[in-house]
Nucleic acid binder design. Structure first.
Lengths: 339, 339
DNA sequence: CTGAAAGCGCTTACAG
DNA sequence: CTGAAAGCGCTTACAG
């Protein structure tokens, strides 16, 4: 059978006994409050560390009303967006001793409710809601919770704090980069128009290019990228010398289609993607220059914000748009960035 | 400023007062123990539900020594393997009221130690360790912890419970499928030989095929799959009529290379991958038939096992190999499976 | 400078 | 059948 190494847990009573003080003195010594002789405080601390004392967070939490846990709620099962957000949240909070419950709720309201209640029972200090698109909310009501809620990459409520990427900025970065390398006929191939981020990216693209080419709306797949190239090359008139694609999958499909037609990327057509999804962007031939939404940074900020709210520090509600970053690989020429 | 809807939390005192009983009676009524009139018990329950009472899990945990939390520790930052495992763990445990801390520790021992201590402080009922390969352990010592540890898709200690996929079974499924559809010259293109799973899959492949073709070892990338096809088509002698690839990326690279040579998949060469990594397998043209390691089921079992150990139920230590499943798409011909 | 007491929100023997 | 008391592991006024 499996051995738990069932050593009894060490409590503050053990520390007090070993140091020859009362438990209140032990507590105060360890928490650097109360007044006592330096010698006593040091001795208690040394003893505690010698016998491996670690305070029980449950007991602490009962008193302090702080559990040093938060919940991350997501409906992005695949993890495409949630994983970087989670990494950022966790990185920002681990130094503050905060641990993160991850709850994947699919699109199931009952499951969502379940998870939220389980977290509230465990007295989480706050909740971060995240998802897979900025213009949809999770299938669970997070208003009027007894703990603060911060939204990251999902639709939030009016009076809450919401973090999202600045897609217009990302699109502008992409188009301006293509213009800088001398491209003039830049076509935008993107996803479904009912996505807010699609419209935002397309608008920024139109602004930056002066609206000379139509935007090709479709779906978020490689095969749509492929089809779009067929369509573009069938029509009459000048061919594009650059593509700005709404995500990396579309870009990959387009690059594949261009190669199959014997058209050189980046020499004849330069391509920029969106998302910086490594598995897609880095494996494309040539690897994709693409826009990174800095989701990890977004997670970091969401984490620090929920912590601030939990500690009662004031935070202004509203939507915070975070800048994107262009990751340069080979699909536009130029050297790969350090990324 | 953000409003917390700062309604005071409802405690068992409120329930007792509202029901006109003592808090001990209230507690016993809600937990279905102690003896009391049915009428009293029902009244207390009704009142509790009416005023929205939910017991504080921290207070409960302090008494019961059970926090109804567990920790999932992983060094698989990208989430490729951890996400399905996490989904399984969470799914299995949510019904038991258990929430899961996710701790991504990269390959940083100090960070790992940090997270483990934070979880122990929070009195987790157990820890599941998971990773990105079966023959490496996490960079943190999990033996002699005061809570049970279960290993899933990472190297465990001798006396622990470890769950892993049965890679030999998966490889056998793949090869036998190719043989069933009439293929005879099946080549195995796979990853680096220092991976245990590579050797195990290759051995099973050799056993199933009778060792007629050399195994091509390389790296886990599309470009290696591509190169392997070049190599195979340059050499003299009969060409393969089927490929069994060590992962989906290699398979995708190979399929792309075959298409570029004008060789039809699956008509001339049938291809099976490994991993069932949707983003790769489903986007390949044609979509890949591939081996799924059933990581979610693996996570489920790991979750139930750590729960059993936490509850003191006996569990035999050792390595449990879980069967794989073949997901049929179009790269071998045949109709797509329901997956 | 140090300790006894009360209490966080609950559960569980133990009296009555 | 119901309640008062003790206690889980800790912290924090309050006495001395």
């Amino acid at each position: 059978m499996v051995d738990l190494g069932s050593r009894k847990r060490i409590t503050i009573h053990d520390v007090a006994a070993a140091a020859g003080v009362s438990i209140s003195t032990a507590s105060k010594a360890l928490n650097n409050n109360g007044r006592m002789g330096d010698e006593t405080r040091e001795r208690v601390k040394r003893v505690a560390s010698d016998i491996g004392f670690r305070p029980n967070a449950l007991a602490r939490g009962l008193l302090s009303k702080r559990s040093f846990t938060i919940g991350l709620l997501t409906n992005d099962t695949y993890g495409r967006f949630t994983l970087p957000v989670m990494a950022g949240v966790s990185e920002a909070l681990v130094d503050h001793g905060v641990s993160v419950f991850l709850c994947a709720i699919e699109d199931d309201p009952a499951l969502g409710q379940n998870h939220v209640e389980a977290m509230l029972d465990k007295q989480v200090d706050g909740i971060i809601a995240t998802g897979k698109r900025i213009d949809r909310s999770l299938p669970v009501d997070l208003s009027n919770l007894p703990v603060p809620v911060v939204y990251a990459f999902t639709e939030g409520t009016r009076d809450s704090v919401t973090f999202r990427s600045d897609d217009a900025h990302g699109a502008t970065l992409a188009v301006e980069w293509l213009q800088q390398i001398g491209r003039r006929r830049i076509v935008h191939i993107t996803g479904p128009k009912d996505f807010f981020s699609v419209r935002e990216r397309a608008d920024a693209y139109c602004t930056a290019t002066g609206d000379t080419e139509p935007v090709l709306y479709g779906v978020w797949s490689e095969s749509w990228g492929h089809d779009a190239i067929d369509r573009l090359w069938k029509r009459s008139g000048d061919r594009p010398d650059a593509l700005f694609c709404g995500n990396d999958q579309i870009a990959r499909g387009a690059v594949d289609a261009l190669r199959e037609r014997g058209i050189k990327v980046p020499e004849e057509v330069a391509v920029v993607g969106f998302d910086n999804w490594e598995i897609v962007a880095a494996q494309t031939r040539p690897p994709l220059t693409t826009v990174d939404m800095e989701l990890k940074e977004l997670g970091r900020q969401a984490g620090l914000t929920v912590l601030a709210l939990a500690e009662g520090r004031p935070v202004k509600p509203g939507v915070r748009k975070l800048p994107c970053r262009l990751v340069v690989r080979q699909s536009c020429g130029g050297k790969p960035s350090e990324d």
